[in-house]
Simulated assay, not measured.
Amino acid sequence: MSRTTASIPVLALALVGVGTFVAVRAQAPERAPGPLKDLAAKAIDLTYAFDKDTIYWPTDKSFQWDRTTWGPSKGGYWYASATFAASEHGGTHLDSPIHFGEGQATADQIPLTKLIGPAVVVDVQKACARDRDYQLRTDDLEAWERAHGRIPDGAIVVMRSGWGRFWPDPKAYLGSDAPGDTAHLHFPGVSRAAAEWLVAHRRVAGVGVDTASLDPGPSRDFMAHRVLNGAGIYGLENVANLNQVPESGATLIALPMKIRGGSGGPTRIIAILP
């Protein structure tokens, strides 16, 4: 019996669309199967790396990562391992509905069907350049619909403020770099009216922002959080690279760390371009 694996007709599964798989012939490791290669070419990473510079809410603990073992082992082979600790709400992350919605879903309870959906990117960069505390308005959502059609059911609506250009400078991004200072925060967010409009008139799965919070920096009552989370809608915060995603046509996939009972957690977000 020949040991040449190239002669064996091995089949592999390749993802060709969200939730769709086909069988393709396995290829050499350095060459991804055609459908998978095509999918990867359309993928945009919307996640900031977690490290010592990751921005967290001023009152939360920052990201900690420590090497426990890193180097050649006694057995002569390489071995690397580390520990990490972090608050749930920092860096690119998801706010579970329970974050501001009593009795709503925790991080582990959000179904996958709600974590994958059409991306609705609402561009308000010009308005945010004029006003650091700009709030996404109902008018902005209606303008998006005039240009692209009705917001689809199950959509993930994301505000594009252009704030990613300030990452990871906490003073520029948040408005203050003083630990514990929540009194001098200035960045765009979602207005109460826009949040209520989405809840009352559309059936969205999630709402995201490329800033530190769904609510604008000066907010003290966090009404966008309360309205959206209270209706079972999760939030995505500190979403990266939105300048690479079109306003309509992409698919968003947001997979949070599955923390049982969690009010949120670090999340890998990707967009699949049309």
Rank of each mutant, 00 (worst) to 15 (best):
T83G: 05
L11M: 02
A26G: 04
R130P: 00
V10G: 02
T113G: 13
K37I: 02
F21I: 11
T59N: 11
R67L: 14
P29C: 10
Q125S: 15
H201D: 12
R192G: 04
Y234E: 07
R192F: 09
C128K: 00
P179M: 04
K258V: 14
T69D: 14
R3S: 15
P274L: 06
G249N: 09
A129K: 12
F222A: 13
A85K: 12
A224G: 08
I259H: 10
P111V: 04
V122A: 08
L94H: 06
M257Y: 11
H148S: 01
L214N: 00
V22N: 12
N238R: 04
D133H: 00
A178C: 01
M159L: 05
Q109M: 14
W78T: 10
S213Y: 04
L228R: 03
K258N: 11
R150Y: 03
L141A: 05
E237S: 10
I8L: 15
G206M: 10
I156C: 03
S248P: 00
P266S: 10
D221Q: 15
T106V: 08
E196I: 03
P168F: 00
L136P: 01
T20K: 14
G101M: 04
L255I: 15
G208A: 11
V22M: 12
G175A: 07
Y134M: 00
L174G: 02
K171M: 07
V10K: 07
K171N: 05
D95H: 15
A143W: 03
A32E: 09
T5E: 11
A254C: 10
L141Q: 03
L136I: 01
W163M: 04
A32S: 13
N241F: 09
A105V: 11
P168I: 02
A82G: 12
G101F: 13
R202G: 03
W78V: 14
D108C: 08
V204D: 07
D66N: 12
D210W: 00
A43T: 15
E145C: 01
S263N: 10
F50Y: 14
C128M: 02
Q135F: 01
G75N: 09
A172L: 11
A41K: 09
A178K: 15
K42H: 09
L136W: 02
C128T: 14
G154F: 05
N243F: 06
A250I: 05
A40M: 14
S62W: 00
V209C: 06
R130H: 01
W65C: 11
P168D: 02
C128P: 01
G230N: 09
P179T: 09
A224K: 09
V190M: 01
T106Y: 06
K114G: 04
I98K: 10
A6S: 15
N229F: 02
S2C: 01
